[in-house]
Design a protein around this nucleic acid. Structure first.
Lengths: 345, 345
DNA sequence: ATGAAAGCGCTAACAT
DNA sequence: ATGTTAGCGCTTTCAT
């Protein structure tokens, strides 16, 4: 059992208090605490002791104010419930730490209004750069933000906006990989469960339609979304055939989370995966390995790392031209995809 | 295509600049911007216009410094990869917003060292309160932190530490519910895949052992962890029988993520769930509904909400006695649990 | 090696 | 209703 602390939380000691106790000036304390070499060993020892005894804790708001630097970057995540974003964030954290920056993490939870508010908060906190891990803002919004602070966007390619860099996979190519995989397995009736009305979903949908056309196949897009439940509903709809419209033999889903939902729907419909119907997701989140679901994978942590690296570069050199980094997308074949059922009914 | 901004990022305008442009004093601008009633309509209009034209953005570090308040709380999350924590966080966010606080979100990603550093950062940023959504700190660490700032702990009951409140489910009861569920289905050989060496895992393990004893059954604990891969390994070990040690007919797993891994292991071993073996998770995260896995559920968002509410209360009344809130735990029966295979071999 | 003084951008107490 | 003034806690010249 730890000692029960009962004194009231007193006003925190300041540099002034430490200085008084160590019998030196404020300036010297400041230097000593930041390991300046021009402090004598004796003073340093006295100062460190005094700080320790008082439980001194530097005040970042004060130091940020005078330094005109916060040493922090803001990170906006679209939706913390999607593990994909946590994986991207790992890379961001790693790179930010490496560069000596701390991160201010916020989320709009997929609500555009909240998203803007949270970003405003970051700007008021004077972050030195901003990383948007997926977002719902318009190009104008982004341009306005980037006019205030260097910005890097992950999961979407940004072009022609000053001071904005971006990192993304190739969504069209990715969908092509997915379609090719299924066609190679023998599928011809492949439906796409879309991710809803946003840019990424549109790109993936377009990629799907193109790839189907390239194989001379008829596309079929079922409106869906990026969550398990939306995937569930869309998959349910896709697989419940009407008599004049036989169900597809494969579902290419807009993202991994929705693919999990799709799998659930097949189970509830009593369909075997991949025996009756194949399912392919998109993003490559870790969890899908355990779930044995085929997916079009992106190097998530690496995307975050690259975005943070680009941002740091830009903070140092504000007017470098915008760059976009395209990362490799690859198909990871697992147990949720296989040949179509042999007797087509 | 948005207008391409090319001017360099100039020094941000301050209150002083706005005041000069509007032809009034700094103080009046400050008042106007914060909707004080003692500003004339004319001045207010002029000030708002000037601020707009200059693209004025208040500086929170400055305002925090002078107000001696940050209007923010710190939130530490053990592991952003576990969707359980995102659900708890929803509740925290909701309550914090309601009380007019913003949140500073950090994660140690299950690394004790990083965890301490991140919390230190929060303290230096002068958060007015701290919420720990699972943690690996000692009671002494917590006591030291709480001596600086009001603290609320989620998922673990804290007792006897001044200025620390907590919200948790009843892990022993929860495990009892899990065991009872399986026993009622007819299971007698129920193994527990533990969550590793931490307090929560220990409590859940103890609860399991007690519940088994209450039914006169032999407990069997397999060391595991809180991740999918650890669940996978532990389940694999549990279900691969040696000849003198028949495999259990049910696995009661330390948390949901590990239960997903356990399910994967059964699939890879060619075992049917629940035909050959039943699986029950713990936490009640949303995703498990789609995956149709039985789990011992806690009201996650509500736990976060209550923790934030307690924290706000304590910020207002520092010396209120510590309180612990216990939330209801319930079994959600789904498709991963059923009767044991009839011919026991 | 150390200290005095100025000031970061803002708010608040006080004056008018 | 508006302006003046004095800091908040810190870093950073500039002296000594």
């Amino acid at each position: 059992m730890p000692p029960t602390v009962t004194e009231p939380i007193r006003k925190r000691p300041t540099l002034h208090d430490v200085a008084a106790r160590a019998g030196v000036s404020k300036s010297l304390v400041s230097l000593a605490l930041r390991d300046s070499p021009k402090v004598s060993a004796a003073s340093r020892a006295a100062i460190l002791a005094a700080a320790e005894e008082l439980g001194y804790r530097p005040n970042r708001t004060a130091s940020s104010l005078v330094q005109q630097r916060t040493h922090s970057i803001g990170v906006h995540i679209l939706d913390l419930h999607n593990p994909v974003f946590a994986e991207i964030l790992d890379g961001v954290h790693e790179a930010a730490r490496r560069h000596g920056y701390s991160t201010l993490l916020v989320t709009g939870n997929a609500d555009r209004q909240t998203e803007k508010q949270e970003i405003t908060r970051l700007l008021e906190s004077r972050v030195e750069g901003l990383i948007l891990i997926a977002h719902r803002l318009s190009d104008d919004d982004i341009a306005a933000i980037a006019a205030e602070v260097p910005t890097a966007v992950v999961t979407w390619q940004m072009d022609g906006i000053a001071r904005v860099d971006s990192v993304s996979g190739d969504d069209r190519l990715g969908m092509r990989l997915g379609v090719d995989h299924l066609v190679t397995l023998g599928h011809r009736s492949i439906a796409h469960l879309s991710g809803g009305e946003n840019r990424i979903s549109h790109a993936r949908r377009d990629g799907y339609v193109e790839a189907m056309a390239a194989h001379g196949l008829e596309p079929r897009v079922i409106p869906g979304g990026f969550t398990e439940s939306q995937g569930y509903r869309a998959a349910h709809e896709a697989a419940s055939s009407s008599q004049d419209d036989p169900p597809p033999t494969a579902l290419l889903v807009a993202n991994d989370l929705a693919a999990i939902g799709a799998l659930a729907a097949m189970r509830d419909l009593g369909l075997d995966v991949p025996g009756d119907i194949s399912i392919v997701g998109y993003d490559g989140m870790r969890l899908l390995e355990a779930l044995d679901i085929t997916t079009v994978a992106q190097p998530l942590a690496d995307m975050g790392r690259q975005a943070a690296d680009l941002l740091m570069e830009r903070i140092d050199r504000l007017d470098r031209p915008s760059v976009h980094r395209r990362v490799a997308t690859e198909l990871r074949s697992r147990g949720s995809s296989g040949p179509p059922p042999s007797p087509r009914r």
